[in-house]
Amino acid sequence: MADHPPRDRTPPAPPAGAGQDLQKMSERLREVISSLRSEQQRLASEAATPVPSRSAPPETGELERRRLASELALAREAITHASVERDRLRARVDELEAEQRRLSDDYVAAQERTTELAQLFVALERLHGGRSRADVVAAVQEIVINVVGSEELALFERNGDSLDLLKAFGVDPGPIHTVAVGEGIIGRTAATGAAWIAGRDPAPEACDPELSACIPLRAGDATVGAIAIWRLLGHKPVLDEQDHAVFDLLSAHAGLALTLRAPRDARGRERA
Score class of each variant (00 low, 15 high):
142 E>P: 02
117 L>S: 03
157 E>F: 05
198 A>Y: 10
119 Q>H: 06
262 A>H: 14
55 S>F: 11
56 A>V: 12
56 A>G: 14
196 W>M: 00
202 P>V: 01
257 A>P: 09
64 E>K: 02
245 A>D: 12
183 E>V: 08
18 A>E: 11
13 A>N: 03
54 R>M: 08
14 P>I: 05
260 L>N: 10
130 G>F: 05
243 D>H: 14
79 I>V: 13
201 D>S: 08
216 P>V: 00
66 R>Y: 08
186 I>D: 04
8 D>N: 08
217 L>P: 11
146 N>P: 02
210 E>V: 03
237 P>E: 01
38 S>K: 13
119 Q>R: 15
208 D>Q: 06
147 V>S: 01
22 L>F: 05
131 R>M: 05
191 A>K: 15
167 K>D: 12
52 P>L: 01
167 K>P: 06
252 A>K: 09
142 E>W: 01
170 G>A: 00
11 P>D: 08
49 T>H: 03
16 A>Y: 09
121 F>D: 02
173 P>Y: 03
106 D>R: 13
27 E>N: 07
143 I>Q: 00
76 R>Q: 15
139 A>E: 01
168 A>F: 09
85 E>H: 10
91 A>H: 12
231 R>A: 06
76 R>L: 09
136 V>P: 15
213 A>D: 15
269 R>L: 06
105 D>Q: 12
54 R>P: 08
138 A>N: 15
167 K>E: 12
